[in-house]
Amino acid sequence: MADEKIKKVSIIVSRGSLEGVYPGLIMANGARMEGMEANLFFTFFGLYAVLDKYMDNIKIATVGNPAMRVPDAKGFPLPTLLGALPGMSAFATWMMNKTMDKLDIPPVREFIEMISAAGGKLYACKATVDMFGLTMNDFCPEVDKVLTVGEFYELSAGSQIIFT
């Protein structure tokens, strides 16, 4: 007998770097493309992906990333010390955005709009919202609601929960 199909996923985005945000967005969008229900839950620095004022400036972390190579994925390892140079993160982000655009992976804001239009739901974590002193006005319009952990688990009933 074939394994049962996944019908519903809850994806938690907990990091605010470009490489922290994209996997969750790609997985949520991919779930909708497969006809699954998709809920995205943004917590801690992952919230920056849906903060209206900051979501267009999500950057790659070039420090503390030992897999980082320059000028491309098969180039030389980037020493952490050089990764800290001013502009390094912006440069790496610019390079990657260019490549992603070619592959039709949209910028963060467009991606969020696309997932929402595709029927994916987006939620912000209440604990972080309180901690960062945020209100609904700080979020992009696609964010449906601020949720407590309990509410998140409730709406995730029957879901696969994926933490990124």
Binding site: R32, M33, E34, G35, A117, A118, G119
Partner: peptide, 10 residues
């Protein structure tokens, strides 16, 4: 997604 529910491109 309304025209082709449950996996539009597929």
């Amino acid at each position: 997604y309304q025209l082709f529910p449950d996996g539009p491109m597929k």
